[in-house]
Design a protein around this nucleic acid. Structure first.
Lengths: 348, 348
DNA sequence: CTGTTAGCGCCTTCAC
DNA sequence: GTGAAGGCGCTAACAG
């Protein structure tokens, strides 16, 4: 055990508010006030306190503050993947919406697996967030129970669940995909295939597939032209492999819709490689308006959702709900439907 | 006195350990033990406690636990961007390395801005992480002071700072870029340009540019052929714009190196669009081995770094250091140099 | 504007 | 294997 400063009572731990208070010649409470924004403190005391803080290298312990004030000062957001510009845009929107109020965002990622989501929710709740944003409308039973019991505002995003837990800020993935099929049909495509992942791990991907199926049925197009493989979210590489399977299985196919722009891009590059003209031989469309699709040659037709706006709206709503909760009030569950937008580009 | 007054049931608030204890007919201490893994509890008591937990919907308050045990159970990691597969791979490696020990990872993103990093560090430290991982070796002076004073293990990654704060797990961006220039030179390219961002906001990008400059000078190649524009990290779209500028400014150019695969991809697509053969008219190379480069047509020559391994190594080191700290010991500063690897592909 | 008192909910420590 | 006492560092609620 290392020798300690004999003057200090505690062994080598971090300085506390009491240490600062002593050094500044005030009480701990005054230090506490000096370190918040809206408190009334004499300039003289504040100056001495800040000097003491600086000298001691004091860092406020929010853990203790949370315990005593019952305000953790953070909200949790769970997204499927941190490496997906859609979700990172939503996270940015969230951050922008809440940061002015002093709340912090804690991100967790679920890898598109609801069981991981459940575990993350459980461990996030142990840190007592003041609100929580989840992606999608499907969760394990226990996750739903945990969220409902937590007595904090919950927002489900990127989906329109039939039985929401609390608030919703999203859109219908099925409806958006349906619109895309109709759009391609309007441009004359009749033998339209779909490329997606195998399992329903990615629930939004599964909803999109269902939207596709519904659309080809209502348009009387040949259906069942679906290539499903790979663990969602399917990658660019898997998109490349899938387009080859799709064309070899149904050689008369004239358009391929991919569950996201990433797989659409992989498919597109594979077409280049094989000398299949896009859209001459086959049209390609994706979903999500990723940069890679905007930039690819040819540029990829897609469905755009304003991911950052989802985040901002969710953040604004969360803020209102949290402030209401702090006053002991409550905001009744809201359901905000965000628009989506077809973007016709060179690939179709 | 905390004499259990059955009449004074707090209505609004979440159940506490005392509530669980009362329902299970044990003391709070026994509940606490039942909820940890390595404690010795009778099977009977544990069963009753878990039933009570379930019935009440009790969720452990880690805030209080942290305060009393002085173990927050989490480590902070700061990355420049959440939407970058390199950094998200590092984050995944970190998570994998630490999760078995029960530690959680809290991610923050700095947008490549050291001032944001400083603010994030300050707010993370208020929550008392047991360790912290930062990206890069350049920080504000105050950030360095905060980290040094926090008395927790610090790991700088993705760089080899000359004066590390504590531990380092990284590589030299300049050396890697230098190797890429030499590689292209070895394949016969002589008029090699560089595309990067304007400011030194992205310090790794700046290091790469310096590596390029150093290499062209030592090879006696024409230099100054650098296009710098856009706020780093420069995007695919900016790569497209930059390649046009590069070619119009130095029409004899035979190779373009981009600060990352993303801008290289944008440049490549623009070449397609303009009918410039790659690598016939101009070779293109990137940095980072992103999926878009592996999948593009043609596939993009690049420098690969095992980003996930950086995360795993940093995580392993952090664990050792944290466990040492819990025993009152310390791990002397380590400096782990990770390998990089040239990947020759179709674009050069 | 500033100080005092009394916890927040859990875990450490020590006794049984 | 279990319980009682005490305190972690801070802030709410009241004085003054």
């Amino acid at each position: 055990m290392p020798a300690d400063d004999p003057a200090s009572k505690r062994p080598r731990s971090q300085p506390t508010m009491a240490d600062v208070a002593e050094k500044a010649g005030v009480s701990a409470m005054t230090v506490s006030r000096a370190l918040k924004k809206g408190a009334s403190i004499s300039e003289e005391a504040r100056r001495r306190i800040l000097a003491a803080v600086d000298e001691l290298g004091y860092v406020l312990d929010q853990t203790a503050g949370t315990l005593s004030s019952k305000r953790s000062g953070f909200v949790a957001a769970l997204i499927p993947s941190i490496n997906n510009s859609n979700f990172s845009d939503t996270a940015r929107g969230l951050t922008e919406a809440i940061e002015a109020s002093g709340l912090q965002l804690l991100l967790g990622y679920t890898d598109y697996v609801v069981e991981k989501e459940e575990r993350l929710i459980a461990s996030m709740l142990q840190r007592r967030p003041e609100g929580i944003v989840v992606t999608g409308g499907r969760h394990t039973e226990r996750a739903r129970r945990l969220l409902a019991a937590a007595a904090i505002p919950v927002i489900e995003t990127w989906d329109l669940p039939a039985e929401p837990i609390d608030h919703v800020v999203g859109f219908s993935n099925a409806a958006a995909m349906r619109a895309l099929v109709h759009h391609l049909h309007g441009r004359g495509y009749r033998r339209i295939g779909f490329i997606g992942g195998t399992s329903n791990r990615d629930t939004r991907g599964e909803d999109r597939r269902q939207g596709y199926v519904q659309a080809v049925e209502e348009l009387g197009l040949p259906h069942g032209r679906t290539i499903s493989f790979g663990q969602p979210p399917i990658s660019m590489e898997q998109g490349a492999e899938a387009i080859v399977r799709l064309v070899s299985q149904w050689p008369d196919i004239d358009a391929a819709i991919c569950v996201s722009d990433l797989s659409a891009f992989g498919a597109l590059m594979e077409c280049h490689r094989r000398g299949w003209a896009v859209p001459g031989r086959i049209a390609i469309a994706g979903f999500g308006d990723f940069e890679v699709g905007r930039c690819a040659f040819p540029r990829i037709t897609t469905v755009a959702v304003d991911a950052e706006a989802i985040g901002r709206s969710a953040g604004d709503l969360l803020l209102r709900a949290i402030e209401a909760a702090r006053r002991g009030a409550a905001v009744p569950p809201e359901r905000q439907v965000m628009p989506f937008r077809l973007i016709q580009r060179e690939s179709s």
